[in-house]
Design a protein around this nucleic acid. Structure first.
Lengths: 200, 200
DNA sequence: AGATTAACTGGAGAACTCTCCGGATACAAC
DNA sequence: GTTGTATCCGGAGAGTTCTCCAGTTAATCT
């Protein structure tokens, strides 16, 4: 993602800046892994990365975006699994199967990264939708829905299908309501099945 | 932490405390109405209410809960409309109609209070599900779903149907994606219709 | 190489949320 | 009334997030 001539050339990051960006993400990831997501402050990340706190903010804008950068780094492989990987997640299976497989996989990763996601989604920011991999998931689900429910407003329905993965709801269901991960998946299946047009 | 008779009687708030609670909510509501939700600090609310900031926190715990108190105050009438009010929102209509009416009404109030809700939902807290009127909405939707989709996991599906009303998603759809309120409602209808078991 | 300049750096500081606890006060019991 | 005490009050302060800008540096042009 650098000097692609496509359209509107994003100003191109200077080498030292790119270097610092990597150092910051790495430092943040390490601190978070060690001490838990909510125990690390931006000051600490900056110090651990050997830069000033101003630099962290210049690179990432706000706390949420930094955390999303860490998350994206972690789940790069998941992101390609459903695009290029083997069926039923990747291409090759019928759309209904892929949709179910995707929702299950997303439930698994949400469960695994719940605390991190929760932290990232906190704070007054669009970051979840703008920054993270939400856009990718949204396009994927919309594409599958288009095959499964032709003519529907797939852009809206994709948002609606992804909405239950909001970390605060997910954590509330799991921890406070005491729902098991399997129960969540079953519920998602019910939702997805309802959306699949059955040929009568 | 006391010698209370087992389970009931929440310690009963002292008169001055109850008085201050009202003053705080009123002051907060007024400030928010005047200057917008995110322009008011807890310090200001405290000063406007004529109490110390410690009192605000003692009464409400955190910022999110205070904002929810303001919101609840505002929509008390909506909350009873779908319980005791006239059809199709209130009792008297068939469940599918009531469900659709409820979703439409909730879309309207979410749209109207979006900024306030967005502020309340920001911050690392369960407040949305614990404090606000979410519990009420959840029970209502689950009750309607039980009639419309017997045997399903209505507790889960109710969460899923309410998930698209998260203020951050809602605002993102309306402002960034540029969806109209009607389009959102139509999408919600599609979702609800899919969940309604059709008698063939 | 030297000059030019747009982009980057770092830390002081503004603004905010929330905690803590000594002192004040409402209510109950006598 | 007086006394006892559980509850409440308020504001100083700790710990954050994020802003701002004077000074520095990497990349480009001649």
């Amino acid at each position: 993602m650098r000097d692609l001539p496509v359209v509107g050339t994003p100003p191109a990051e200077r080498a030292d800046a790119a270097h610092n960006r990597r150092r910051i993400v790495r430092a943040a990831a390490e601190l978070i892994a060690t001490r838990g997501p909510e125990a690390v402050s931006m000051d600490e990340v900056a110090r651990a990365a050997g830069v000033g706190v101003g630099t962290v903010y210049r690179r990432f804008g706000d706390r949420a975006r930094l955390v999303y950068a860490v998350i994206d780094d972690r789940e790069r492989e998941f992101q390609t699994a459903f695009i290029h990987g083997p069926p039923p997640l990747g291409p090759g299976s019928p759309a209904p199967d892929r949709l179910r497989a995707f929702l299950h996989a997303l439930a698994d990763r949400t469960d695994a990264q719940a605390d991190l996601l929760f932290m990232a989604e906190s704070g007054p920011s669009d970051a979840r939708f703008r920054d993270g991999s939400y856009g990718l998931y949204h396009r994927h689900v919309a594409m599958l829905l288009a095959q499964v429910r032709p003519g529907a407003d797939t852009a809206y329905l994709a948002d609606a299908l992804l909405a239950p993965f909001a970390a605060n709801l997910f954590l509330f269901q799991r921890r406070t309501r005491g729902m098991t991960l399997d129960r969540v998946k079953t519920g998602l299946d019910a939702l997805a099945d309802a959306l699949i047009v059955r040929t009568l």
